[in-house]
Write a protein that binds this DNA or RNA. Structure first.
Length: 271
DNA sequence: TTCCAGGTCGTTT
DNA sequence: AAACGACATGGA
């Protein structure tokens, strides 16, 4: 196993924060991760991260283990509400996912839940990915190409199957490269041309794979928690978005992830 | 049984 | 432009 020293990083919290789905826990807190068409393992012990199957450069990029991320945390902590949450979930990071994998995963996310999305991506990988081995562990890579509509439906994707099929056709290298070169506004516009990708999922992709930290996806949980903490009433999706974008600017997306984890960890409180 | 879950689409006002 | 029902699936 390779090893690097990490600071202010919590692997478990980051993986379980609803931004990424293609992983599973094996034994002894080792995580098996399927991303960028690779299969690798990661384990955290205190300030050390052990991993195998990829190199340290990959790991640092994948988990945003860089200094600029920490600076952004300082920035958003100027807000008292946010600094409280940041202190409680210190170690949560925005990951940098493969763009195509991120899009397909989040198409599965509409009116679903984290366990179900995980199930969908695992089934898609089983049917269309490659079986690989890392150490004693075996699992499937995220598919580089999907197959027939019928089998996509077998992955329990329901009404999203037709969107996945279409998206898979659109998502060639040309489209992905164009996305990567685009700024936030343009990337969001391009993404929303894919059926099954609306503003919320487009923002998730911008935030979780393209590095546009100004993206602020508003889902039901964000609407609830921002309503409660800043509006003291039931605010609309539009109000929530414009308020947070104005208040947190270039770091709105990171704020969003901390608010989201706070909301889902305290479910009932924010209903 | 009924309700809800990291929404989006197509249709109707 | 805004409101509204439909949409597959599974867990509580």
């Amino acid at each position: 196993m390779h090893k690097i020293r990490v600071k202010n990083f919590d692997l478990l919290l980051t993986l379980e924060s609803g931004q990424f789905f293609s992983y599973k826990k094996t034994e002894d807190d080792i995580f098996l991760i399927s991303a960028y068409s690779k299969l690798f393992i990661v384990k955290q012990q205190g300030n050390y991260l052990f991993f195998d199957g990829v190199d340290s450069k990959f790991i640092k990029n994948f988990f945003s283990l860089n200094l600029s991320y920490e600076k952004r945390l300082e920035e958003i902590s100027k807000d008292k509400t946010i600094s409280d949450i940041v202190n409680r979930y210190r170690g949560l990071r925005i990951m940098k996912q493969d763009v195509r994998e991120c899009i397909l995963s989040f198409i599965c996310s509409s009116i679903s839940n984290i366990p179900k999305i995980k199930k969908n991506t695992e089934l898609l990988s089983r049917y269309f990915g490659k079986k690989k081995k890392i150490k004693k562990y075996e699992w499937y890579t995220f598919p580089e190409r999907l197959g027939s509509y019928k089998i996509i439906l077998k992955c329990k994707t329901g009404f999203r199957a037709k969107y996945l099929k279409e998206a898979d056709k659109i998502l060639d290298n040309h489209f992905i490269e164009k996305l990567k070169k685009s700024d936030y506004t343009e990337a969001k516009r391009l993404l929303m041309r894919i059926r099954g990708v609306g503003k919320k999922i487009a923002d998730c992709v911008c935030l979780f794979s393209l590095g546009h930290y100004e993206a602020f996806p508003v889902d039901i949980w964000i609407k609830r928690i921002v309503s409660k903490k800043y509006f003291h009433r039931d605010a609309s999706e539009k109000e929530v978005e414009s308020f947070c974008k104005k208040r947190f600017g270039e770091n709105a997306g990171i704020v969003q992830q901390f608010l989201y984890i706070e909301a889902i960890k305290n479910g009932k409180k924010y209903r």
